[in-house]
C-alpha cells in the first residue's frame, strides 16, 4: 500500500509541469477572455474596467447573429462533404495491402509539410477566371465560358473540405484499421449481403472514428476564417473573420472576446446535443 502511494505521488509530480502549463496557457487566457467580454471598450485603445453586458446584447443584432448562422451553415456543409469523401477514403485505405497503405498514408501527409495558407493560394491559381480549372474545362469543351469560381461560396466550401479532409480520413482510417475483417466474413457467412454486413458490422465498428472525424471537422470549421477570406473574398463573412476584424481593426477587444465566448458556447452546445443524440460513449477521448 505504501509503495503504491509513493508511486501515485511520484506520477503526480511528473505530471505537474503539464498541469502548470495547461493552467497558465489554456485556462488563464480563457478566464481572461471571459472577463474581458464583460468590459467596455475605451474610445481609442484598451478597456474600461467596469461590468458591461452590452457586448452580448450586440451579438443578437441581426448583422452578427446572421454571421453566426452563416458560419454554422458552412460548418455543416463542410462536415457533410468531408464525411462523404473522407469516410470511404479512410475505410478503403485501411483495407489496402500494407505496402500500398504506407504509400497512401505518405501521400496524405506530405501536403501537411507545406503551410496550409500556401496550399490555399494554390487553389486561387486553379479557381481564378481563366485559371487552370477554366482552361481545362474549356479545352475539354465541358464549359464555354469561364466559370469565375474564385470568390464564390462553392470555392470556400472546396477550400474548407480540402483543408479538413485529412482529419476525417485519418480518424476513420485508424478506426477501420482495427476492424477485424473476419467479422465481416462471419456476417457474410451467416447470410448477410455486402451492404447489410457493411451497415451492421463495418460501419458500426468504425463509428468511433467517424464520430471523432465529424467533431474534428465541425469544430475547426466553425472557427476557420482565413479560407473564406482567401477564396471567398469579402463575400462570405464568418464569425472568425468578424472576431479578427473587431480585434485588429476596430480594436474592440471586449466585443471580440464576447464573440469568441459565444462561438465557444455555440460549438460546445452543438457537441453536447450531438453526443446526446448519438449517445456515443466511444469518441476515443475526444470530447
Amino acid at each position: 500500500m505504501k509503495v503504491k502511494n509513493r508511486a501515485a505521488k511520484s506520477s503526480l509530480l511528473m505530471a505537474m509541469p503539464m498541469y502548470v502549463f495547461t493552467i497558465l496557457f489554456t485556462f488563464g487566457p480563457l478566464i481572461y477572455m471571459f472577463a474581458l467580454s464583460f468590459m467596455r471598450r475605451q474610445a481609442t485603445w484598451g478597456v474600461i474596467n467596469e461590468f458591461y453586458a452590452g457586448n452580448y446584447l450586440r451579438i443578437l443584432e441581426p448583422v452578427f447573429s446572421g454571421v453566426f448562422a452563416e458560419s454554422f451553415k458552412l460548418a455543416l456543409i463542410t462536415t457533410f462533404f468531408v464525411t462523404l469523401f473522407g469516410y470511404p477514403f479512410g475505410y478503403f485505405m485501411a483495407k489496402l495491402p500494407p505496402k500500398h497503405k504506407n504509400r497512401a498514408m505518405l501521400l496524405m501527409i506530405v501536403p501537411f509539410w507545406t503551410n496550409s495558407l500556401m496550399r490555399l493560394y494554390g487553389w486561387i491559381i486553379i479557381f481564378r477566371s481563366n485559371g487552370i480549372l477554366d482552361s481545362v474545362l474549356i479545352a475539354l469543351h465541358l464549359s464555354e465560358k469561364p466559370l469565375r469560381l474564385l470568390y464564390t461560396y462553392p470555392a470556400v466550401v472546396v477550400g474548407m473540405v480540402y483543408v479538413l479532409l485529412p482529419f476525417m480520413i485519418y480518424s476513420v482510417y485508424s478506426s477501420a484499421e482495427k476492424l477485424d475483417w473476419s467479422l465481416v466474413e462471419a456476417a457474410r457467412d451467416l447470410g448477410a449481403s455486402k451492404t447489410y454486413a457493411f451497415l451492421t458490422i463495418s460501419l458500426r465498428l468504425t463509428m468511433p472514428g467517424l464520430l471523432s472525424g465529424i467533431i474534428l471537422t465541425f469544430i475547426p470549421s466553425m472557427g476557420l476564417y482565413f479560407i473564406a477570406d482567401i477564396l471567398g473574398g469579402n463575400k462570405v463573412a464568418l464569425v472568425g473573420s468578424i472576431i479578427q476584424e473587431q480585434l485588429l481593426r476596430a480594436r474592440d477587444w471586449p466585443f471580440a472576446a464576447a464573440l469568441s465566448v459565444a462561438l465557444m458556447a455555440a460549438t460546445s452546445l452543438t457537441l453536447y446535443l450531438y453526443r446526446r443524440i448519438t449517445r456515443s460513449e466511444d469518441l476515443e477521448g475526444l470530447v
Binding site: D180, E185, A186, R188, L190, A192, S193, R204, L205
Partner: peptide, 20 residues
C-alpha cells in the same frame, strides 16, 4: 456463389463474435 447464398456455416478460428 457468394457466401451468403450457401447453406454452409463456419466457426472461425478466432470465433469472430461481433463485439458490439
Amino acid at each position: 456463389l457468394a457466401p451468403d447464398k450457401r447453406d454452409v456455416n463456419m466457426v472461425f478460428q478466432n470465433y469472430a463474435l461481433f463485439p458490439h
